[in-house]
Amino acid sequence: MAALGRARSAVNQVILGKAEVVDLAFSALLAGGHLLLEDLPGVGKTTLAQAMSLSLGGDWQRIQFTNDMLPADIVGVSIFQQAQEQFEFRPGPIFANVVLADEINRATPRTQSALLEAMAERQVTVDGQTFPLPEPFFVIATQNPLDLVGTYPLPDSQLDRFLLRTSIGYPSATEERRLLVEPDRRDLLSRFEPSLDPGGVSDLMALATDLPVSEPLLDYIQNLIAATRQHGGLKAGLSPRAGLALVRAARAWSLVNGLNYCAPEAVKAVFPSLATHRLETRPESGLDSAAVVEEILGTTRVP
């Protein structure tokens, strides 16, 4: 637990004033999910991913997606070895504890689905052979929302492979001033000491799974999900799987925040990042899903 706190504060040292995003990132990690950052270039997506992976102590890989990328560039290829007269698997960059999939919407859908499949199954199948991915396995994907030319936005049905979707956003004035004055963040990263190790992360994940969730909180979660299903502005409500994900994420968030129980604040904190990309509004309602989610949070009673 102490190690988790150290890791969190270390990352917060690097990503200034974005404690909520850092919490969400750690929550996604400890809940065994993946994180999608939808943001402009240069706000610190890469730095965040790098800081996360460094603090975890595992190895990390960065994959810069382009439109000529093939699935093999991600998962790896089998190469025929003349000497041994057999195929040998060369693992791709996905074989790492933390993978930063940068600008995922630049790749073709085919390549995207290779990544998404690997994320979901936590293993890679090449030429009929299955290779498990390391544990823990955590993907931070980024997507540029403005850059639409020549991109393949992730289809809606695929978006729920990501446990949480969030954005970092611009820093506040004071944080920006510190960024300008203080040394480059990359220098900070180079001095980064890992606070955790892959084994420790697995322990924390187990701890998060066991965190107690009380009856009133389950009521609250059910009410939220029911509200999405009844809302007139939405095409469809959250699925039971999404509900399960909400419980997992809320537990992880509580753990990250040092609580020994699952708190309603956790549900409120993760609900927008968890729900907005899973919900689709009716075009004629003139609402967007973030507004609907805010409205639901604002109108559902906390028991």
Binding site: P264, L297, G298, T299, R301, V302
Partner: peptide, 8 residues
């Protein structure tokens, strides 16, 4: 507020 948690 009904939608506030105790700590909020």
């Amino acid at each position: 507020q009904p939608s506030e948690t105790p700590r909020e």
